[in-house]
Amino acid sequence: MYSKTVMDHFKSPRNVGVMENPDGIGEIGNPLCGDMMTIYLRIADETIKDIKFQTFGCGAAIAVSSMLTELAKGKSIEEAKKITNKDVAKALEGLPKNKLHCSNLGADALHQAIQDYEARKEGKPKGEVEGDEPDKHSHDEKCYCPYCDSQISEEETVCKNCALNVDDPQESQQAGG
């Protein structure tokens, strides 16, 4: 299901852990939506000198976090701002369609950590970054039914192909027949 690169980053994640006194923190997601990611930045000369992550989530979410930190490390702030979700997914040699949302989490967390850094630089107390928190449910990637993989629109609640009710908590994927 996952590419070799994804499995490599899942099994041996780079830059995982907590950072003491970081210059910027980005926190995205919540356990309710499934994944949660925290990015810590150490910045000097407007360059990311060190980066750490913590992630609660599936194999893809952990691999995305790890790859994201590798892409961002050593980059200037301006370069890091340009890292997109697509860049992360591409560097991982692709993700299963129904796991693409995990890659959104990664770049969003990085961009939020950079915002936090810039806000602190301007003297705002930490944790008061406003406005730009990305909506975890809307992103430029397309959505796919988690069961039959056919494309569905954001508004759609029932997949036209397999009749799955995407928003129905009464229904979820089951194994074992």
Partner: peptide, 26 residues
């Protein structure tokens, strides 16, 4: 082993069985 959690696009869906027994999402 097996898991019953499943990712949906945009949100990870927890098992309807476990939620019905009163378990939290996490």
């Amino acid at each position: 082993v097996s898991t019953r959690s499943a990712c949906a696009s945009g949100s990870l869906r927890a098992s309807h069985v476990l939620l019905s027994t009163g378990l939290g999402f996490a």
